[in-house]
Amino acid sequence: MSDATSFEQQQRASARVLLVPLCLFMAALLGFPTLINLWYSFSDVSFQNLVGSFVGLDNYVAALSNPKMWQALGFSLKFAVLCTVIEVAAALVLVFILHPLLVKRPWMTAILMLPMMVSPALMGVMYRLILNEFTGPIPVYLEMMGYGVNFLGRGNIYKTIVAIEVLQWTPFAFLILLTARQTISYELEEAAAVDGATGFRSSFHILLPLMIPALVIVLFVRFIDSFRVFDHIYVLTGGGPGNLTTSISIYIYKLFFVQHTLGEAVAVSILLLLMSLALIASAMRLVVRRS
């Protein structure tokens, strides 16, 4: 018994020795930028003066009192919720429809994954070219058929960017949910069929409850990814017309690189970090209570 205890203590000591360099590296990698950002959020730092002087909570007050920040935050929340719901719902429907076909022809899954292989910035450039009101092929063909549509105009731009986001990232949700669907044993489906649960009843009452953990993960990941969207919207619209499509990421970018208000930009980033941590803590508490 003593030999086993001694061996376990040696293993723990060796683990500590091996983990110390990694912990120090992570502390330097994450700790230094965090401290710098905290200082920047409390100072009047600029590109001419990267040290700045302490201004207290002025940057946070300016950030919270700026209506453009709340407009950008509202856009990001609305965009993230709408895109996440559409993507996950469409992926779930596609999983139940295409699963029998993909079991026989799994190579077709690679074809369905092609949209998310394209860089979001490149996707924005591509759609900016094909949806241009004057030179884009799609508006030209629609106008020839008598349907004049300006996809990048004020009336349609929100629908356009939502459609682009959904088309590119629905395959991601589909892949995760398809993997969860394929892990369900065939014997369970046979037993459900023997009991009379077939078709919609089997999918809704048997398969869907077993896929809920994967469904929650997909919802969480896609919401975060859609909330912080920057690439294709900035390339496609630059946050316009006006501030109509300015997400919170684009707003921070403009504060930092266009308006040169570095302190306020970092303050907004810190506020978003705190909100994210609060959201994660609430979700973890909810999971613990349910378990």
Rank of each mutant, 00 (worst) to 15 (best):
A121Y: 10
L273Y: 01
T246E: 15
P106D: 08
V85D: 07
L142F: 13
F220A: 15
Q9N: 09
S41G: 04
D3R: 13
A278D: 00
T183D: 06
P120H: 10
E190Q: 15
I161S: 00
R105C: 05
A13T: 09
H205G: 00
S41C: 04
F42V: 10
L57A: 15
F7I: 09
A163D: 08
F96Q: 13
N243F: 11
H232M: 09
L94S: 01
R201H: 09
A173Y: 06
S185F: 07
V103L: 08
G240S: 05
I206G: 01
G196Y: 08
A191V: 14
V194Y: 10
K159I: 09
A90D: 00
M117T: 14
I97A: 15
F220R: 03
I250Q: 03
T237S: 11
L210E: 05
V140F: 15
F42E: 02
Q182I: 06
L177A: 14
V95I: 03
V81I: 15
L277F: 09
A4P: 01
S2F: 04
L101T: 10
Y186W: 14
V95D: 12
Y147Q: 06
K68Q: 14
Y253P: 06
S43E: 09
S226W: 06
N37V: 00
L167G: 13
I212K: 11
L35G: 15
T109W: 00
L167T: 11
Q11L: 15
P171I: 10
A4V: 14
S203K: 13
G56V: 04
V287R: 10
L29P: 06
A283K: 00
